[in-house]
């Protein structure tokens, strides 16, 4: 994609920061995240109980706290692609949202260089609109300018491969297969240059060919931008794209190191 011209400039800033110095992009300092779930408690959901709470003007016993991330610290550097692994519900996605500044931390601090973005453009897209309009809407939602979108429009469509089987881009997105929709979403999201990009299970969908293409795009983004975070349950795609892995389990950072070492331990752990 036509984004290659950005990298020399980024390298220059990295180099000017000092010889051989590693420039941090994300610093997590003892991060704790607590969710408050309303209506999660048992036996309190009746109308009278709700009325009682409203009258007493306090949430009462209906709030349950979920301590999703417990004291995670790490420093991410420019040029790294970091995989996040761990079983379901171990706090990976939650941690990403906190880094993106979309969830508040209960304790601790998250420092970031610029604005990290979550690859979450799907939320802005509308199924009733054509793929074409969605490309524009999604681009604008991510903060791209009109000119940038115009310039990259063709790249996005080509990358998604939507038009390989006919003129699908001018059809409403609700007519797409789930794989096609996922491909278009990833293509839109990956079209922007991100300082810190976070990808949550985006590569699970799409066929083999598209998975290969998106992994290549992630490596590219990492070179241009700085830091890429990738949440995935596919160890192979982690191995192919990441050079460092954080392993979360029950909200605790269990291991942090080079991909091979951590994945080896993780695979042993999951085999049990």
């Amino acid at each position: 994609m036509a984004v290659a011209e950005k990298s020399p400039e980024k390298n220059a800033t990295a180099a000017s920061a000092g010889e051989g110095e590693r420039r941090p992009t994300v610093i997590a300092d003892d991060v704790h995240i607590v969710y408050r779930v309303y209506g999660g408690a048992r036996g309190r959901g009746s109308a009278t109980a709700a009325l009682n709470r409203i009258i007493r003007r306090r949430p009462g016993g209906n709030v349950r706290e979920v301590h999703a991330v417990k004291g995670v610290s790490f420093t991410a550097y420019r040029g790294e692609a970091i995989g996040l692994i761990g079983s379901n519900g171990s706090g990976k996605s939650t941690l990403l949202r906190a880094i993106a500044g979309l969830l508040p931390v209960e304790r601790g601090k998250v420092y970031t260089d610029g604005q990290p973005s979550l690859l979450g453009v799907n939320a802005a897209l509308m199924n009733d609109l054509t793929g074409e309009r969605n490309v524009i809407l999604g681009g604008l939602a991510m903060g791209m300018t009109k000119d940038q979108i115009e310039e990259r429009y063709q790249d996005i469509v080509d990358f998604s491969g939507i038009n390989e089987k006919g003129d699908f881009i001018s059809l409403p997105m609700r007519t797409y297969s789930s794989g096609m929709a996922a491909r278009l979403r990833f293509s839109i999201a990956a079209a922007k240059d991100h300082d810190v990009l976070m990808i949550d299970e985006a590569l699970a969908t799409g066929d083999k060919k598209f998975q290969k293409r998106s992994e290549a795009r992630i490596r590219e983004l990492r070179k241009e931008a700085g830091t890429v975070f990738l949440v995935s349950h596919n160890n192979k795609s982690i191995r192919d794209t990441c050079n460092r892995v954080l392993w979360l389990e029950h909200g605790v950072l269990r291991m942090d190191g080079p991909t091979d070492e951590v994945l080896k331990e993780y695979e042993e752990f999951t085999r049990k």
């Binding site: 420039r23 941090p24 610093i27 997590a28 300092d29 508040p104 601090k109 420092y111 260089d113």
Partner: peptide
Amino acid sequence: RSPDDGLSPAELAAKYGLTASG
């Protein structure tokens, strides 16, 4: 042998101009 050794996360963040998000 990094010059950043021994810096606390907050100091490291300040050194490179990182800001708390949100």
